[in-house]
């Protein structure tokens, strides 16, 4: 294992976060605070408790997931797309490192950034609403598993994309709608029966539901199914990344 290389990529990527502190940290914190003001304080005060949880507190896990998913994808996709775009990828490809080490460096850094953000958002939310974490281990499990899985997904998008438009395409057109419709701001019980069934096809629902369960022991679907789903996504992403490096897809000709 080439630990020095993993460390080099990791530190290099984390340095990018420090350079773009305003964009990387302040912007998500600001947008989350706005969600709390609008949904938590303004509209939320007129909404009843959901499954015994005040609305403001209820949306915290969903908001954390929203930030986690968006940032994991954007950090990891940009992290690998930019060297491709400017051509510096030649150095990574010609270095004595395996695909696993490249992924550990890039995805590790992207997931770390997302985890830092998730923690900041949790702290910010705590300023607005009371929060209870009943299952800290599972909360941490969902947090880490989601950050890693979606950083891997972002890494795949970054390799697939051959222009900036494609880089934004999936996060904007697929991921954001799935997060919003996956029960970030509501319980699916609040939907008509037909739409409840449709929502079950949304993979993000399982992540938010499991994550919310770790906070308040209330969930839309069984927590076992949530754990199985996140494990399945992780395995799928790992498989895809392995295939990319085996074939050199969009990296080597």
């Amino acid at each position: 294992m080439n630990f020095e290389a993993v460390k080099a990529i990791y530190i290099f990527e984390m340095a990018r976060m420090r350079r773009t502190l305003l964009q990387s940290v302040v912007s998500p914190v600001l947008s989350t605070s706005l969600y709390f003001i609008v949904f938590g304080a303004a509209i939320g005060s007129r909404i009843e408790e959901i499954n015994g949880v005040p609305y403001g507190s209820f949306i915290v896990p969903g908001l954390m997931m929203l930030t986690l998913l968006q940032n994991s994808i954007s950090n990891a996709s940009f992290g690998i797309y930019f060297p491709k775009f400017v051509g510096t990828i030649y150095e990574v490809l010609s270095a004595p490192i395996s695909f696993l080490e490249i992924v550990l460096g890039y995805v590790g850094a992207a997931a770390t950034k997302s985890l830092i953000l998730g923690t900041i958002i949790l702290a910010t939310a705590h300023l607005f609403v009371p929060i209870e974490i009943r299952h800290p281990f599972w909360m941490l499990f969902f947090l880490v598993a989601t950050a890693v899985t979606f950083s891997l997904f972002g890494f795949i998008i970054g390799i697939w994309a051959d222009n900036f438009e494609k880089l934004q395409l999936i996060p904007l057109l697929v991921v954001t709608p799935l997060v919003f419709l996956g029960g970030s701001f509501y319980s699916i019980e609040m939907l008509p029966e037909f739409w409840q069934k449709v929502t079950l096809a949304n993979p993000v629902l399982y992540l938010i539901s499991g994550f919310r369960w770790s906070f308040y022991e209330t969930s839309d679907v069984s927590v076992t199914v949530s754990i199985a789903m996140i494990s399945l996504f992780l395995a799928l992403c790992l498989g895809l990344v392995w295939w990319i490096f085996k074939t050199g897809y969009r990296l080597k000709v």
Binding site: E4, A5, F12, A15, R16, V86, T88
Partner: peptide, 22 residues
Amino acid sequence: HVETFETVWDTVSYSRGLFGKK
């Protein structure tokens, strides 16, 4: 092909690390 926003020192040090050298 260079990392536009990096400093000279950082980018050269990065290359050394990438090749597994302390």
